[in-house]
């Protein structure tokens, strides 16, 4: 966080943050602040903020009246939730059986090498987050992956790297797959 925002952008950021909090509040209200809805609330929080930082987790824990360690435990139990900010692109490589036997491992290895990162992390220049998924259920497209939410089937290491390089950086952190 070396960036020093000017006053103007600081207020913009603040209001956008407040806007996001309002979205979260709406989700909290919708579930009537029920503690059972923790996972739903975390889903919304992640969609809204891109990742779950300490401040958000603390907020959720206060709102749902759950112990902070409980919220943290749930947020880290599930693969979907990320406590770290995501890169400009998010590439999810399916490592299901069909994809694996058709060479998904090579794709991951190649991306790791090209973008100098490890699966499950974000590149130092924040250009890419690489995630390996258990199975995305599109086995007939093996090996397949999603790049910023878009499905790419029958990939090779070359085609994947090319696709990542060619896709323009999106401003939105989360892909809107459903409406």
């Amino acid at each position: 966080m070396t960036k020093m925002p000017s006053n103007e952008s600081a207020t913009n950021e603040k209001s956008s943050h407040e806007l996001k909090l309002q979205l979260l509040d709406k989700a909290l209200k919708k579930c009537q602040y029920q503690q059972d809805a923790l996972i739903e609330v975390l889903h919304t929080a992640q969609e809204t903020f891109g990742h779950l930082d300490e401040e958000i987790l603390d907020y959720v824990s206060i709102q749902l009246k759950l112990p902070p360690s409980w919220v943290y435990g749930v947020a880290t139990f599930y693969n979907f939730f990320t406590l770290e900010p995501q890169g400009d692109h998010v590439c999810v490589v399916c490592m299901g059986t069909a994809c694996y036997v058709k060479g998904a491992g090579d794709i991951i290895a190649r991306i790791e090498q090209e973008f100098d990162l490890k699966a499950g992390t974000t590149a130092a220049d924040n250009s890419l987050t690489l995630v390996s998924a258990r199975c995305l259920g599109n086995c007939s497209l093996a090996p397949m992956l999603t790049l910023d939410g878009a499905v790419l089937g029958k990939q090779t290491p070359d085609s994947t790297v090319a696709a990542i390089r060619e896709t323009p950086a999106t401003t939105s952190v989360v892909s809107e797959e459903t409406s």
């Binding site: 987790l57 603390d58 360690s69 943290y72 435990g73 880290t76 139990f77």
Partner: peptide
Amino acid sequence: HTWDVRHRGIASRVITDL
């Protein structure tokens, strides 16, 4: 309820608060 567990499987660790 200060204590809980973070992550899962072999990566599980006991934690306090957040």
